[in-house]
Design a protein around this nucleic acid. Structure first.
Ligand SMILES: NC(=O)c1ccc[n+]([C@@H]2O[C@H](COP(=O)([O-])OP(=O)(O)OC[C@H]3O[C@@H](n4cnc5c(N)ncnc54)[C@H](O)[C@@H]3O)[C@@H](O)[C@H]2O)c1
Ligand SMILES: NC(=O)c1ccc[n+]([C@@H]2O[C@H](COP(=O)([O-])OP(=O)(O)OC[C@H]3O[C@@H](n4cnc5c(N)ncnc54)[C@H](O)[C@@H]3O)[C@@H](O)[C@H]2O)c1
Lengths: 248, 248
DNA sequence: CGCGATTTGTGCACGCCTTCACAAGCGCCT
DNA sequence: AGGCGCTTGTGAAGGCGTGCACAAATCGCG
């Protein structure tokens, strides 16, 4: 490898390519590694082997090593990875050192739960604004924040320099809300409303659809049932070790 | 193709291989096709072209055709796909005709929202039981269901033949809840608690971690920012059409 | 009845991702 | 100082998924 100066503070130290373009699959796993590392740090561990961290994150150890190697390799052969150092590295890469401002649109059933969720703050995000179109909801206090009207979205987003928006409105209004978020300068959207959003190509959208998750599970139920029922297929894949971690 | 008898009712008609083992990537997209199809059906469309359905589902049309071809191909060349027929097919493959029973464990902030969510019932699932370990929650009525104590999980799951469980408890108790669900005969789990679950290999787990989703978005924010800042990198990938669907 | 327009189904090539297997490197113990 | 065991980092291979491009099939029309 070409980089052995690993005393460098994450970020602007020269020589470190500010953006080693990571494979998409890798960046999707980094947050899981980060969570596992935080957990390890709490238990007082100074270092972890790839094997240990892989187990904690529910992945293959070779995959983990390759993933980490992409971001410059902060491990020591024969020892493992320095937990604190790796935490800093991953947090830097993910941009979590910025404590990004997030706004939430749609304070209904789901939005209410999200607004009160402590897991955002503890993992690098600040929910700084709540919006709803319903006048009855505007003014309501949730977790120290006042619900504002959607009309103020553009102004507030600019003031607070909000880059990430969460959509928790009914499906029918999701596209309109997305358009409003984009107009307000938001460039990343997390969407809970079922359906496809259309946004400019410089805006990233991630979708969470619970019904889809259940339907995928349902498929596997169906498959498992038909396997055991069918005389031809082997009744059940013999568990290779009794307990097998599945993770995601 | 080998199957032209497509008047067959989905399912037990002879000649139809009960389980064409679909690529994992395909089954993850089927629910999205299904949603788009339902939407089309409501607008009165009898048939759809692969192009049209692909647009509605936010995917490439070639990918859609290949996906559908895996489940036996119910389209007509020169015309398109019969919407109603395709809906039936996909619902059968996903096992949604069973109206599967689902239980929810952990009726807190998030669990409350989930318990009241209409999107489950409308897409093939019945939430038949709510559980919580907190005595103060037990007995509470939500959406016509009474919260029961976790101790009753095994009995109730057997009575209602529940195959799918949803975990919405704090991270620390998630593994214990998963174990209880497995002991109760549940073979599919949707987990909202951050962390890795360990389950027998015949049990499927899907995870939803909102912080991870935000962190992935944060990475892209970081990347976008460093691109515009860096003199070398081109400031912003020129939108190839102004409006580009991103979907997932 | 034949022809052209249209759309499906798929062979094929390419690229990404995963996984194995091992050489290189590091620390510790003697 | 040297050797030994352990762990990382990576080359290479295989598998999976994607998207192009086109032949086959179907419909409608003259
Ligand atoms: N409740 C859940 O557990 C759950 C689960 C999965 C997905 N979802 C999805 O999340 C979304 C919200 O679900 P919910 O149960 O909270 O619905 P809800 O009806 O309880 O809440 C929707 C909120 O959005 C507000 N709203 C409507 N139009 C708006 C607009 N144009 N701008 C701003 N706010 C607007 C409404 O005033 C309301 O407060 C839906 O798309 C739903 O499908 C919900
Ligand atoms: N609130 C959110 O918007 C949100 C978002 C993303 C993820 N999550 C995750 O979802 C989970 C629940 O979040 P929440 O905000 O609803 O928490 P919460 O504390 O409001 O609710 C947790 C509920 O689980 C119950 N519980 C605890 N231990 C239990 C056990 N062993 N068996 C059965 N029930 C038990 C508690 O009594 C409580 O009612 C957490 O893991 C959280 O990280 C929540």
């Amino acid at each position: 490898m070409s980089q052995q100066r690993h005393g460098s503070t994450p970020g602007e130290a020269d020589g470190v390519p500010a953006f080693p373009d990571l494979p998409e699959a890798t960046i999707a796993r980094l947050p899981e590694y980060l969570r596992a590392l935080h957990h390890l740090a709490e238990t007082g561990a100074e270092t972890v082997s790839s094997e240990g961290l892989a187990a904690a994150a529910g992945v293959n150890s070779a995959k983990l090593r390759k993933d980490l190697s992409h971001l410059g390799s902060y491990g020591t052969r024969g020892v493992g990875y320095d937990v604190a150092l790796l935490v800093d590295q991953i947090e830097y890469i993910l941009g979590l050192d910025k404590n990004r401002a997030v706004c939430l649109v749609g304070v209904g059933n789901l939005g209410h739960a999200l607004a009160g969720y402590a897991g955002f703050a503890s993992r690098g995000f600040r929910v700084v604004a709540l919006f709803d179109a319903d006048p009855k909801k505007v003014g309501e206090q949730i977790n120290g924040l006042t619900v504002q009207h959607t009309d103020d979205l553009e102004r507030v987003a600019a003031e607070e320099s909000i880059a990430i928006g969460v959509i928790a409105t009914p499906p029918g209004t999701a596209q309109a809300v997305a358009d409003a978020l984009v107009a307000a300068g938001v460039t990343s959207i997390l969407n809970f409303a079922p359906g496809v959003l259309s946004v400019p190509s410089n805006v990233d959208v991630r979708k969470v659809d619970l019904a889809i998750e259940l339907q995928i599970l349902s498929f596997h139920e169906h498959r498992k049932a038909s396997l055991t029922a069918l005389p031809g297929g082997r009744s059940a894949p013999p568990a290779n070790g009794g307990q097998e971690a599945v993770g995601s």
